[in-house]
């Protein structure tokens, strides 16, 4: 793809990731607005570690992560372990994302109004309207995944990292969630990195696919669902 003058949103430069020993080395990746990249690979290979490094939770062993986000809450992260407040309601949890994604500078009234609006939209998109006042601990695994997704959508991030956010969902729900999230990315010009264990789904969702294998990040090319 030729991106000409467009500014990148995310640039990984010769990145080496891991906790003490490197898991994956020499990762280079540049992403532009509207792009979706999938990461696939075996369990324990370092997919979550890659997302956590991009998010700044783990320091890179070598190289650097360059994020071009300026606004508050510009980085959205749907973690594999969801990190929800279990005793609090769905709307409270989603509100945390909306809070981070809005700024007082927008003016106090718009601030509160916009927040509530964002929360309602995200809850509706994720099909959680009936559950909005339920404490999260009473929700099923799939419903909790959708709460975490709604929270990040309400944040309106410029870069979205999602770690297996479709697992535990049934086919119908997957379609609903995928549509909202991908629509959001395309419309707002965000960039999304998606960790996905289902290769077919990765092909369906993303512009580019990378596989983590033997300590490297390798781009995969598919044609009609088959590996070339």
């Amino acid at each position: 793809m030729d991106h000409g003058e467009t500014e990148f949103l995310l640039k990984l430069e010769q990145l080496s990731i891991g906790y003490e020993e490197p898991l994956i080395s020499n990762i280079s990746l540049t992403m532009y607005p509207g792009e979706v990249v999938s990461i696939i690979g075996a369990s324990g290979i370092g997919k979550t570690t890659l997302l956590r490094t991009v998010a700044g939770l783990v320091a890179p062993l070598e190289g650097r992560v360059n994020l071009n986000v300026k606004k508050r809450g510009g980085l959205g992260y749907i973690p594999q372990k969801l990190g929800l407040v279990h005793h609090a309601s769905v709307s409270h949890n989603v509100g945390l994302g909306a809070r981070a994604g809005t700024s007082f500078r927008e003016g106090p009234m718009t601030w509160v109004g916009r927040r509530n609006e964002r929360v309602e939209i995200a809850i509706e998109q994720m099909g959680l309207t009936e559950k909005r006042n339920e404490p999260v601990r009473r929700l099923s695994g799939g419903q909790q995944k959708r709460v975490a997704t709604a929270r990040t959508l309400a944040q309106r991030p410029q870069i979205l990292l999602a770690d297996e956010f479709l697992s535990e969902l049934d086919e119908d729900n997957i379609q609903i969630v995928v549509e909202s999230v991908i629509d959001y990315v395309k419309e707002s010009g965000a960039a999304m990195i998606l960790v996905e264990h289902n290769t077919e789904r990765a092909i369906q969702l993303s512009n580019r696919i990378f596989r983590l294998v033997e300590g490297e990040l390798v781009e995969q090319f598919f044609q009609g669902g088959e590996e070339e």
Partner: peptide
């Protein structure tokens, strides 16, 4: 509440 991983999932950059 939940450390760095929780913070970032609510959009707060811990670092």
């Amino acid at each position: 509440i939940g450390g760095d991983d929780f913070a970032i999932s609510t959009g707060v950059n811990p670092v």
